[in-house]
Design a protein around this nucleic acid. Structure first.
Lengths: 341, 341
DNA sequence: CTGTTAGCGCTTTCAT
DNA sequence: ATGAAAGCGCTAACAG
């Protein structure tokens, strides 16, 4: 049933070495006859190698560890972000014949354990903050791409020489800035900002978007007013203050949809009473009314890129043109939730 | 750095066997002193076993293969279903110290390959139809749970004796029936049905729901009218015929939201002109307006149950009370999209 | 109570 | 051009 190299060797009347050589295309020193014979047997018996044995002897398997860092017990896979990422990662891993092991982790120590358990070829880290990323790097030697992790520029220098370390993220600051510009183009001058509650001390996606919002306002000679920055637990205040702005930037479609729903309940109309623009371009954004004007972040591509990055050192292909940090732009999907003033 | 049993044995001045015994709690024949000594070393050096070596010698690893069957190139992980399932599966796998390898497969042959590659302890199959399930079973010997796969009752008999085969699904027929009953309770008598286009010959979730819809109508002395069954590519017809029904059952929140959005655009109001009730209870269903009355299917629990099922034979715990097929009920979330007539 | 040993399936020198 | 043999880290007889 489960055939091994040894048996193939016996069937072909050759040694295991030869079989191994043929399988790994080290055929320069094998006669064509033998090659064909072996290949036929492999096909006939549907032979596929035992990855555990391979991993054991090579001390490296065809495994990619997909690490979801979270303080929660389990990462929130409901988030469309996770799904899109997975789709991109699966696309590449299948193409490259690698395998993806998913793991939610709550502490950096978890990484050490799982890393010892399996000999991963590389990792993709999601949900890491600068601090946890730094700690993770102490442990992980294999190539790793961190998705959406921001780091201080000062730290960047130390990373520069660090091999096997990659980053992929959106250009959140620029994208937020673009959102402001779009609203300004449409005649808006009073622009609010709504986001999830986060620790503003930490460097992350939200902080960057906030900074981009601020930059955008300044660039368009509009003042930044901290009273126009709201958090998801203040939706009532957002609505109370609706007269103080004509448009609002929301850092997630989900939150935007929630807001719109509340606004409607209170008798307000979008975009007439208030324009809404957001991030994500999730599937739903064009199913609701009004259809959301939102920023497509191409999270599936992000997944593809993330795995693509580490595949370079993993496969040992020359890495001349590879960048350590890939910053992706977004693409605005202009739909109905922003009004021309 | 990466310490092995051999080295632990040396450090503890014992043999590898003893170390192995201690690690696997076969401590009945080891002195407490030795146990402590070994455990301390393990802790000190942060030792964790090499799973590949273990898998090789045991011909079974702590891997669960999560197989997503699809005709597409990549499974649609965007679907909230996949995320919820994953969440449930991860919850249990973490608890049990097992690892989840995700794989999209396009044909049953793919299973053979991946199964040879790694020695899985068990599998969870998603997206399998009866035919592909049957084929998969020919190949897979390990415990497997199929999620949401329906099979003919005739075939059931053959399965009865089949070890290691489990099913988890919702009671789709009963749930659809319940939906009809709820609508009838609310005074509706003309009830339409909207679903995704599927092959009606195949036995699956949609077919069951359709049957339940039919049963429900009959049970309430309402006639079944095939003209009131619509498919997702006929949304315009759904709306054209709006006078022929007062409520519509939609087999997915996503589709329901799409419909509502279209209805609104055409100037209709939900639930006043048409009540809508659906399946899934996705996160969005209570963020939109009107808030969706929908059936919670507990897909995350489904994931937990699926893995729980196969963990029984995997861990070799006595499986007296285990059922081969677990059928889960839903729970109606009554919100705003159904009108009291 | 502890150690010796063979072997899981594969790769890789080193011979021939 | 092909083969023999050692060894990756671990487990499980079997011996003592």
């Amino acid at each position: 049933m489960k055939i091994t190299i040894k048996e193939i060797a016996k069937l072909a009347n050759v040694s295991m070495t030869t079989v191994s050589n043929v399988m790994n295309n080290r055929t320069n020193k094998v006669s064509q006859e033998t090659i064909d014979k072996i290949n036929n047997i492999i096909k006939e018996y549907n032979y596929t190698p035992n990855m555990n044995a391979k991993a054991l002897v090579n001390s490296s398997s065809k495994l990619i560890g997909l690490l979801f860092y979270t303080e929660q017990e389990i990462y929130n896979f409901n988030d469309p972000f996770a799904g899109q990422l997975l789709e991109g990662i699966e696309t590449i891993s299948r193409k490259e014949n690698y395998f993806v092991l998913i793991q939610t982790i709550n502490s950096v120590d978890d990484i050490g354990v799982i890393r010892n358990n399996w000999q991963f070829s590389g990792f993709i880290g999601v949900g890491f903050k600068q601090q946890t990323m730094l700690e993770a790097m102490e442990i992980i030697q294999e190539p790793i791409t961190f998705i959406d992790t921001y780091y201080d520029e000062i730290k960047l220098k130390e990373f520069k020489d660090k091999e096997n370390l990659y980053f992929v993220r959106s250009d959140d600051k620029k994208i937020a800035h673009d959102l402001v510009s779009h609203l300004v183009d449409r005649g808006h001058r009073d622009i609010a900002f709504l986001t999830y509650r986060v620790n503003l001390k930490e460097h992350g996606v939200i902080q960057e978007r906030l900074a981009g919002y601020r930059d955008g306002l300044v660039a368009h000679d509009l003042g930044f007013d901290s009273k126009l920055v709201f958090y998801n637990d203040q939706l009532d205040q957002v609505i109370e203050n609706i007269n103080h702005y004509s448009a609002i930037i929301v850092t997630a479609d989900l939150l935007a949809i929630q807001l719109i729903s509340q606004l409607k309940e209170q008798g307000f109309s979008v975009p007439d009473d208030c324009s809404v623009i957001s991030f994500d371009n999730i599937q739903f954004s064009e199913l609701i009314s009004p259809k959301l004007t939102t920023m497509n972040l191409f999270q599936n591509v992000k997944g593809e890129v993330a795995l693509g990055q580490i595949m370079v050192p993993i496969k040992g292909t020359p890495k001349e043109n590879i960048q350590q940090t890939i910053i992706m732009d977004g693409e605005l999907e202009v739909r109905e939730s922003v009004k021309q003033m």
